[in-house]
Design a protein around this nucleic acid. Structure first.
Lengths: 337, 337
DNA sequence: CTGAAAGCGCTAACAA
DNA sequence: TTGTTAGCGCTTTCAG
C-alpha cells in the first residue's frame, strides 16, 4: 500500500507538503505541486481514509437513516437516498446507509464513534424517538420531514399543508363543491408521520374557507382495498365530484375502478394526485398533480448539512412550496341534475 | 470525547486490556471485564472508528454500488439494499452507499483508500466496466447479477434461465401452444444486463423442447407502450394464449388493457409474471408468478462477503432456484375453434 | 513557500 | 491473566 510518506520521498519533498498539496490548505509553488502530483499519479497513491479520519477527526461521511417501513412509497425513498448520495459526493462526502432496524441507538453509535460527521434522517415522525438522541449527539443533523417540535432542528420537507390547500383551490376553481381525499394507509396516520396529516389539515382548512365539503378516507392501496374505499365514499357522499389521492398504491386501481364503474375522468370525477411526476405521467390518464420533489429534498438536505459542517447555518426549516400541474384528469364537475 | 485511555485509567487497567475486552481476542478475568464494562458504561465510551480502522486496517464497512438507472424496478433495488444493510449490521459491518454516478472509478477510490473492506455490486452487466477494477482492487467483492465472464468472481443471482424455462413448462402443462413474452424496456436488452436475456433464452430453449411457439417483445411499460406491444403480439400471433411478463411497469396496464379488450384472465389468456411477490399479490388479478427473491439476494451477498473477509470462501456463483407459485391468472387455454 | 515533528486513538505484537 | 509499547498514515502546529 502506497503511503503519503512514500509519495513524499518519491517527489523529494516533506510529508506535510504532500498533505498540503492534497488539501490545498496552504499555497504551494507550481513546480512542487507538479512534482507531487506526478508522484501521486505514478505511485497510484490513495490517502488512507482511517488515518485521515483519525488525524483530522472528520470522516467525510454522512449517515443517512432510512426507515424500514413497508407502507411508504419506495421509489420516493430511493430517489431521496440517491440524491443524497450523489450530492454528497459533489462535496467530497460519502454516505453511510442506516436502516431503522437498529433503532434510535444507531444515532448514538454513529455519532459517538465518529463514523459519520453528520446525519440525515428520513421519514421523521411527529414525535420521533430519534430526536432526543439527535439533539444530544452534538453532530449536525438534517431531518427530511417535520416533527412536532422543531426547536434546534433543521428540517426539509414539501409544504404538505400548502399542498392540501392547493388541491382544494384547484378543485374549487373548477367549480367542485364536494371532494374526497383518498389517503395513505391507516398505519401512516396512526404513526403520526406528519406529512399525511398535514395535507389533510391544509386541505380541510382551505376547503372550509372556500365552502367545499370534504371527506377523508385512509386506504391501504391495491384493488380490493380501494374498491371498498371508493364504495364508502360514493355511498356517504353521492355528490362527490373531486378526488384527491395521496397514496401511490391507490392510483392505478383508482383509475381502473372508476373506468369500470363508468365514471369518466374528468367528465364525471376529477382526480388530483399528490405523487412523484413520473407516477402522474405514467398513469392511464395523465394526472393533474402536485409533485413530490424527492430529488430536491435530498439535495437540499445535503446542502444544509454542508452549511452546518462549515459552521455557517443555524437551525431552520425549509418548506418547499408545492406546485400543481394541470393535466388531463381534472376539469369542471358535471352539470347538476 | 472519551478515549480508550480514559476508560483504562478509570477502570485501573491498561489500554490493551480495555481493547481486548472490546474485541474478545484474549481471555479476561470476569472481575476485570466487569470493571472495564462498568467504566465504559459510566463514561459513555464509544471506540473511535477512524483510529480503529487505522490501527487494524479494517474499516468494518462494506461498499454497496447501486446503479442510477431509471429503467430498473426500484423497489427490488431498494429491498436488496436494505437487506444488505441489515444483514451487514448483524455481522458488525456498516454499508456505504455508492451510486453509479461516479462511474467505475468509485471502485478504485473506495478500495484504494481503505474506506471499505469489501464491496457488493448491484445490477451487473454482462460486460461490466467495473469488473476489471474489481479484479485488481484486491478486496473481496460479490456481484449481484451475472456477468459474461465470472472467472475469479463471486456472484449471486436468481437463475433466470431456469425461471424462463419454468414459465414455459407451466404454460405447456396447462396446454398452451403459443406464448409471448412481454419483456423489459429495449434499453435493458441493449445494455446486456444479462437477467432479461437469460430469462428469454431459458424460456425459448424449453419452449422449443416442449413444442411451443414463442414471441418476445420488449416493452417500455406504461399504458401507451403496452397497448402497442399487445396489439403487435396479437396481430402477429392471434393464437397466443399465454403471456409471460417480465416488467413490473407493464403488469397493471396489461391487466387493465386485457380487461378492456374483453380478454378474460385466465379464461382467454393466461398471464405468468416474473416479479416480486408483493406485486403479484397486489395486482387486480392475483398473478401466477416466479418471485424475485430480493431480500435473499441481499442476504446471500453479505454472507458471501463475510466468508471472504474471514478467509474462507473462494470464488463461486450462487444461482438461486426459481419458484413458481400458481395463482389466479393462469389456467388451461380456451377450447379451440 | 517548505520542513520537522508531535500527536490523533487504537491494535497487536512482545513481555511478564 | 495483564501490561508495555511500537506503530498505523495522516494533519497541523510551530519553525524557518
Amino acid at each position: 500500500m502506497v503511503t503519503l510518506a512514500e509519495v513524499a520521498r518519491h517527489a523529494g519533498v516533506s510529508a506535510s507538503t504532500v498533505s498540503y498539496v492534497l488539501s490545498g490548505k496552504r499555497s504551494i509553488s507550481a513546480t512542487t505541486r507538479d512534482r507531487v502530483e506526478r508522484s501521486i499519479e505514478e505511485l497510484g497513491y490513495h490517502p488512507n481514509a482511517g488515518a485521515r479520519a483519525l488525524a483530522s477527526s472528520r470522516s467525510n461521511i454522512i449517515a443517512l437513516m432510512m426507515p424500514l417501513r413497508t407502507d411508504m412509497y419506495v421509489p420516493v425513498m430511493m430517489e431521496i437516498a440517491l440524491a443524497v448520495a450523489t450530492t454528497a459526493r459533489t462535496h467530497g462526502y460519502d454516505v453511510l446507509l442506516l436502516t431503522g432496524e437498529e433503532g434510535p441507538a444507531a444515532v448514538r453509535r454513529v455519532a459517538g464513534s465518529g463514523l459519520a460527521d453528520a446525519m440525515i434522517l428520513m421519514d421523521v415522525e411527529l414525535l420521533d424517538a430519534r430526536l432526543p438522541l439527535v439533539r444530544e449527539a452534538g453532530r449536525p443533523a438534517v431531518l427530511i420531514g417535520l416533527p412536532a417540535d422543531t426547536t434546534g432542528l433543521t428540517c426539509v420537507d414539501l409544504d404538505f399543508a400548502a399542498t392540501g390547500a392547493l388541491c382544494a383551490e384547484h378543485l374549487a376553481e373548477l367549480g367542485h363543491r364536494e371532494i374526497a381525499v383518498i389517503g395513505e394507509a391507516a398505519a401512516v396516520y396512526e404513526r403520526h408521520t406528519g406529512f399525511a396529516e398535514r395535507t389533510v389539515e391544509g386541505l380541510r382548512r382551505r376547503a372550509r374557507e372556500l365552502g367545499l365539503r370534504t371527506l377523508h378516507r385512509p386506504c391501504e392501496g391495491g384493488y380490493a382495498s380501494l374498491a371498498g374505499t371508493l364504495a364508502r365514499i360514493f355511498g356517504e357522499r353521492p355528490g362527490t365530484t373531486g378526488l384527491v389521492v395521496q397514496n401511490e398504491h391507490a392510483i392505478d386501481p383508482l383509475l381502473s375502478l372508476l373506468r369500470e364503474q363508468g365514471r369518466a375522468v374528468p367528465e364525471d370525477v376529477s382526480v388530483v394526485a399528490v405523487c412523484p411526476e413520473q407516477v402522474a405521467l405514467q398513469a392511464s390518464v395523465r394526472l393533474t398533480s402536485v409533485a413530490i420533489p424527492a430529488q430536491e429534498m435530498g439535495r437540499r438536505a445535503v446542502e444544509l448539512v454542508m452549511e452546518k459542517l462549515e459552521g455557517r447555518g443555524r437551525p431552520r426549516s425549509t418548506l418547499l412550496p408545492p406546485e400543481l400541474t394541470v393535466r388531463a384528469s381534472s376539469g369542471p364537475p358535471p352539470a347538476r341534475g
